[in-house]
């Protein structure tokens, strides 16, 4: 059973509070490095696209936002499922903490996509499969957050919202494969596929750096929100006393 101790320790609020604090400075440092290189590389170093010229540079903020919108949702759903099945309070805290961050990335993916679609496609918005399924993702996040807010009892909020999060996860493969399953205005994947990425290294490296940087940024924000959730859930546990500065 020794191999499972790390999993069981993740069920311990003080342990998770401590490690999330220990990760935080490193996450912040590497977030800044990777997003810094990603944006500098994307806006300055990368050549313009042969068709889209400089407008293609929106990809360095749009694609990572869209990636995080889905990764954060999977995080919410997996954490919620672990919370339901193993009755793990920390897992419910992770789900509750990841949702607002994921919602913000989903909003950004839609907004930057709109700002890219207007000059290139010729429209701010259209009801194709990719755009529609991403909008549904935003509504799933908002529904999840509203459902949580509707309960006074935290345990009930955890359970009800977990079911919604788990049901909604079917939307994630739909978003990803929407451009394959149906013909759409949105193009296929450039990087997130099994084949070779459809861009040269000069454009690709900043994009990969940006994708990693956004992922680390999500992890960093999650650590901060998770600490807040744990404090709220631990009520008056004695280990909290020195942390919150109570006598």
């Amino acid at each position: 059973m020794a191999t499972w101790t790390w999993f069981h320790r993740l069920a311990s609020p003080p342990h998770v509070y401590r490690i999330s604090g220990a990760f935080l400075p490193w996450l912040a440092l590497f977030t800044a490095l990777f997003i810094g290189y990603g944006f500098y590389g994307g806006l300055v170093l990368a050549p313009p696209d042969y068709q889209q010229k400089d407008a293609f540079r929106i990809i360095y903020v749009h694609a990572p936002s869209a990636w995080l919108s889905m990764l954060a949702y999977v995080t919410v759903a997996v954490a919620a499922a672990v919370g339901l099945i193993w009755r793990m309070k920390v897992a419910h805290a992770v789900a509750a903490s990841a949702a607002p961050i994921g919602a913000s990335f989903t909003f950004l993916a839609l907004l930057t996509g709109s700002l890219w679609g207007k000059p290139m496609w010729g429209t701010w918005w259209t009801w194709d499969a990719r755009l529609t399924s991403e909008l549904i993702l935003l509504f799933l996040y908002l529904g999840y957050l509203a459902l949580r807010g509707a309960f006074d009892d935290r345990a009930r909020a955890d359970q009800a919202s977990a079911v919604l999060a788990i049901v909604g996860v079917v939307n994630i493969p739909i978003i990803h494969f929407s451009v394959v399953w149906w013909n759409s205005l949105h193009q296929g994947s450039t990087v997130m596929k099994l084949a070779r990425p459809s861009m040269p290294g000069s454009m690709l490296w900043p994009l990969l750096s940006s994708l990693l940087g956004f992922t680390l940024l999500f992890a960093a924000l999650l650590c901060v929100r998770l600490r807040a959730e744990i404090i709220d859930r631990e009520r008056t546990a004695s280990w909290l006393r020195p942390i919150v500065g109570a006598a």
Binding site: V224, A228, V244, A247
Partner: peptide
């Protein structure tokens, strides 16, 4: 996002402190 996360942590600590008091 950053302000929201840090604000949530600060508020949670203040609530816990009041509970202890």
């Amino acid at each position: 996002n950053l302000a929201g996360a840090l604000g949530a942590l600060k508020a949670a600590k203040a609530r816990a402190r009041r509970r202890f008091e």
